[in-house]
Design a protein around this nucleic acid. Structure first.
Lengths: 242, 242
DNA sequence: GTATCGTGTACGGTATTATCACACGATGTT
DNA sequence: AACATCGTGTGATAATACCGTACACGATAC
């Protein structure tokens, strides 16, 4: 673990909730000396990961960071995007492409339906696996050892009355998810929001991503869910050897 | 300048043209010892900026980098996107939002027209200011000192026979750009491609971004260009105090 | 007008820190 | 089966980054 690098990243992460920060605020948020922070920030500015506003002399995230971020999983995202467009049109709901990170999932691509009432997911958002269809779909297909590690690591929080908040409840659901090839989120994250997701497996059967469909519960009838299941698993199958 | 941080960024930049790399390749590309590279890479993996493929044990850019990259100029991009949608529809050509970095511009947002023959720009791409309409629009409104610095820093390369390859030619064009409020790219980057761009100024009159319209020269008639000029400058004006 | 607080920036001594050469085990190749 | 190459450790050396301190500047308050 190289200290300076870890600290530099911590500085970048300070900007997740604020987009302009002064040196003093950065030092405080990252728990660093002002002079230490200054050295790190200067380096980050030099490399383009941060930039300094000429007017306010405050710092913000830089364009080099944008460029690098755009390269993350560029081919996977490129390949999925046309599939999602088709899925979105045929299902008439918002569809997403997400990937696991630790015990969370991160949204990488979305395609929103044009319904007035629709689900709006946020690109780059991180959510716990246990309360999302995509997360459960991925968990279901993980090797048992890894799945148990993740199950143990959760610090459950009941977002709604439906949220599964015990490892046992989750294990039970994951069994059915494996038999169906799909996992569900039945208003477990937000009331009125139902999701269904299928895992994308690599050639070794390891889940590397998921595609999901999110809609208002009122529109997600049993029949619609069957349609989603068929479409999502078919889509996921086309990406088997990503 | 903190050495480790600068080296860590260099490692991330190794992935601009390749998306999977082993430790040895990383060390070679970044000109580092293998063990040094290993320490840096381990730290980057720990922080999520890199991730290791469980199968191949190779490294690639991580999701935390994606998340951070998505936060760059998030509000500016959010605000411009609906404007670009309208612009794209009224003009019937691909429109872009870009920002300066050093003597280059970087594409941040695009909206593509649905014409079969259309210009496809690449988000995150970096191009020299001197051969793009957006770059020239921004240069035209920079304080003279900074503009001259940039003009001197160019290492000109003639992409087409129209490319301006001397500081004098550029200076002359920038004068007219200031009077018009718009800059042009008349097949200077690629034959058959014409662009026009207007700078977005902050409340101090400093150019912080540009909006551009790119189309095939055959469709970019004088009349169309006048229409573009009006629409682009109007759009840019709405963003004056970003 | 003066004083105080905040800011961003700069320097130099100290010891923590990262670096490098070397080595190990595992894969896969000739 | 020997070999090459990969990713991964280790530990001694010295280069490195950290911290305390200090300064210039601007804003606010008195």
């Amino acid at each position: 673990m190289i200290q300076s690098v870890e600290r530099a990243v911590r500085i970048l992460q300070c900007f997740e909730d604020q987009d302009q920060l002064g040196i003093t605020q950065i030092a405080k948020k990252a728990e660093l000396t002002k002079s230490t922070a200054f050295g790190l920030v200067s380096t980050l500015v030099e490399t383009g990961l941060l930039e300094q506003d000429p007017g306010t002399s405050q710092y913000r995230l830089g364009l080099e960071l944008f460029r690098l971020g755009n390269r993350v999983d560029a081919d996977g995202r490129q390949r999925i995007i046309s599939e999602l467009t088709v899925l979105c049109e045929t299902l008439g709901e918002t569809v997403n492409y997400m990937r696991p990170e630790g015990s969370d999932i991160v949204y990488l691509v979305k395609k929103e339906t044009s319904h007035s009432m629709r689900i709006c997911t946020t690109i780059g958002q991180r959510l716990p696996m246990y309360c999302t269809a995509g997360g459960k779909a991925i968990m279901a297909y993980l090797p048992e050892k890894q799945r148990e590690e993740i199950l143990q690591s959760f610090r459950f929080s009941a977002f709604t009355e439906n949220t599964l908040v015990t490892a046992e409840d989750l294990r039970r659901e994951l069994v059915t998810a494996r038999t169906e090839g799909c996992a569900y989120d039945r208003e477990e994250l937000e009331l009125g929001l139902t999701c269904i997701a299928a895992p994308i497996l690599n050639r070794f059967g390891y889940p590397i991503a998921a595609v999901s469909c999110s809609g208002p519960t009122t529109r997600m009838t049993p029949e619609k869910l069957r349609q989603c299941q068929a479409a999502l698993t078919a889509c996921a199958a086309r990406f088997r050897d990503l």
